[in-house]
Design a binder for these strands. Sequence first.
DNA 1: ACCTGTGAAATCGTTCACAGCA
DNA 2: TGCTGTGAACGATTTCACAGGT
Lengths: 222, 222
Amino acid sequence: MKAEKISEVTTNRLSVYLRCLSELAAEGERTVSSGTLEKRFNLNSAQIRKDLANFGEFGVRGVGYYVESLRGQLAGILGLDKEHRVCIIGAGRLGTALADYQGFKMSNFEVVALFDADKTKIGKKVGKVKIFDIKNFAGVVKRDNIKVAIIAVPGESAQKVLEQVTAAGIKAVLNFAPVPLRVLDGVKLNTIDLTTSLESLSCFLAGSNGKNLKPISKNGRK
Amino acid sequence: MKAEKISEVTTNRLSVYLRCLSELAAEGERTVSSGTLEKRFNLNSAQIRKDLANFGEFGVRGVGYYVESLRGQLAGILGLDKEHRVCIIGAGRLGTALADYQGFKMSNFEVVALFDADKTKIGKKVGKVKIFDIKNFAGVVKRDNIKVAIIAVPGESAQKVLEQVTAAGIKAVLNFAPVPLRVLDGVKLNTIDLTTSLESLSCFLAGSNGKNLKPISKNGRK
DNA sequence: ACCTGTGAAATCGTTCACAGCA
DNA sequence: TGCTGTGAACGATTTCACAGGT
């Protein structure tokens, strides 16, 4: 094992492996080999082994991996053994839908606050989560020990909100605004860009990815 | 220009460039250089030029790119000049939130149907979009000329739904279920995996990515 | 026989650096 | 001079293939 930088694609796969293991555990499997994972979940077995080997020697030659044990290791590596307190900025459609999304529990995330600038929303609740004034952001973050922020505001305000978030000392941010954001060193920003995902489908349907590209000749304005 | 396979990361960036250009156009800029885009939106100028050069010679040496003209080219490449009719499968929280998400318009996507298996939901409407019985999937898809499907069902049913979707002839699918899915050749599947995005943040906070990895010694069971 | 862990090879993607055109 | 388009260098990631443990 090496003590080097692990790439993001690698850790993202760990997350996938963990879910596969949970499924196997639910079915009562005690051990699993990388080959079985390859066939069953169409992953690449060499890649699975390489990924895991970054963090230790979890497997047993001739046998495979012990499902429960590996599950625990992956949960630890991914930091899912501690609760993460999360806030959501933007109490619009997306923000409120996220606020009572049930899937957070699985990863030990707890949404504890919503923020908005709209006076008519402040003080209301979405499920159990109260909507606070964005002006009180830093105070609530400190008081409630919030470590993760989700940005669910329109693109125009995203950069400003991000700066507010990092100024309050938050180091992990999930962004849904479809704009390029600048972030300070030491802060982790993940963007989920629905627009790009959609346009990627559109591009596929238009055939612009595949082979046959028409040599669009010359630039527009002469 | 070459007539080769364009990678997904490349086309995803086109989508970003297009949004940057729209912003510049709104500000009245007539031309822009890759260097300006680099500084302003923190992109890499060489990469921008390479990406664009895959599709033609859009720039003018000594000048840069004509904003409006390039915008049109990119919209064409991404297939945004034609309307795409979309359905959403799963009328739960996520599905309904997506059904009246306003951002689809920007990319010329139109949500025309929701599907669910829950009898109590069928026939109701979310905004202007009617909820149909999933049993009538293929029929509605054909009748309404639907070309794109969004899967917003729980992980357990996602694979089955995907098979139904492809059986109905749909070739472009956006999936929100956090499970590995198998897809036929010729079908484009994009997955937006909220769980992985979150766990990536958690992993960062746990410090498992960075350098200092403890040499977790041996496999679990003895 | 089976399966992991891992160098080496192959592939893919990004950045550099500059020739050449406006 | 300013900027594009692009080969070449570099770096990262994936896959291969096999030595070695059980």
